[in-house]
Design a protein around this nucleic acid. Structure first.
Length: 259
DNA sequence: AATTGTCTCAACCGCCCTCGA
DNA sequence: CTCGAGGGCGGTTGAGACAAT
């Protein structure tokens, strides 16, 4: 199958956006929305590819974009989430209101990656598809009780996991005990394609949920992890159990202050 | 002041996924 | 069931800014 180009290359402008173009795009979207990105530039009178318009809006023009430097907490969140789910920038961005996947990706590659232990960087999985992402981040979540997610041999798969805690690189020098999951005992073939809704559920800012106080895992002062995992998809006790189990199996929880 | 090296980030590219016909 | 359009995502690039020499 020959894929049609995303836009007719003829006559379409590329490169940096001008303020005039920005204004046209903003005005158009505010007035009509962006139901159809491909049709949008033509209707708005822009000589741009629809994808380019979408990118410009998502990454730069959206009114809820938070600009400026990332806070320590935001950076810690990115590091922690990246450790858990890999290069799923959009999922990570879902945990950081006002930040875009592109921005997070940039920050990771330019700053945060260097903070991670060299061997961890070397082992960074190459994730190209959602199933790849799951292969490389085989966390077992209680929601896998959902039959749509479970393979026939689920019980066996559960028991096949082992987790390790890795001392985490923090700027403040604290030990965040973030979690990495060993892959060696994991048979990816036994698992189904992960449903995208899983990540959404896990990573969404779920205001319905009673916040789980993972800050306790770090002691009285609210640490980066606790702060950001406080409402980490904890829509029920299973979620809490899951993360606690991860920490417990990591065998490092005793090193933490008493809860 | 000029040159070179490094960093940052906006934007593009191409692949994958979803959904409707 | 198949195909294709459209949207979304992650990887990569390149230009400009900044720092070091």
């Amino acid at each position: 199958m020959v894929r049609a180009p995303c836009c007719e290359k003829m006559g379409l402008k590329k490169g940096p956006w001008t303020s005039e173009e920005d204004q046209i795009l903003i005005t158009y979207i505010q007035r009509y929305g962006h139901a159809n990105w491909r049709a949008l530039p033509k209707q708005a009178g822009l000589s741009r590819c629809g994808k380019s318009c979408r990118l410009r809006w998502i990454n730069y023009l959206r009114p809820d974009i938070k600009r400026g430097n990332f806070t320590k907490e935001e950076e810690e969140t990115i590091i922690s989430l990246h450790e858990m789910i890999g290069n799923r920038w959009s999922a990570i961005a879902a945990r950081l209101p006002g930040r875009t996947d592109n921005e997070i990706k940039n920050v990771w590659h330019t700053r945060l990656k260097k903070r991670v232990k060299p061997n961890q960087v070397a082992q960074e999985p190459k994730i190209k598809t959602h199933s790849d992402a799951f292969k490389h981040t085989p966390l077992v979540h209680p929601r896998f009780d959902d039959p749509r997610l479970l393979p026939a041999s689920q019980e066996q798969s559960y028991s096949d996991f082992s987790c390790t805690a890795t001392d985490s690189y923090t700027m403040s020098g604290e030990n965040t005990n973030s979690v990495a999951v060993k892959e060696d005992s994991f048979c990816s073939e036994e698992f189904p394609e992960i449903d995208e809704s899983f990540w959404s559920e896990v990573l969404s800012m779920d205001s319905r949920a009673a916040p789980v106080d993972l800050t306790a895992l770090q002691g009285p002062a609210s640490g980066p992890l606790g702060e950001h995992f406080g409402s980490f998809g904890a829509s029920d006790n299973d979620d809490m159990d899951f993360w606690l189990r991860v920490f417990l199996e990591a065998g490092d929880l005793q090193a933490l202050p008493e809860m």
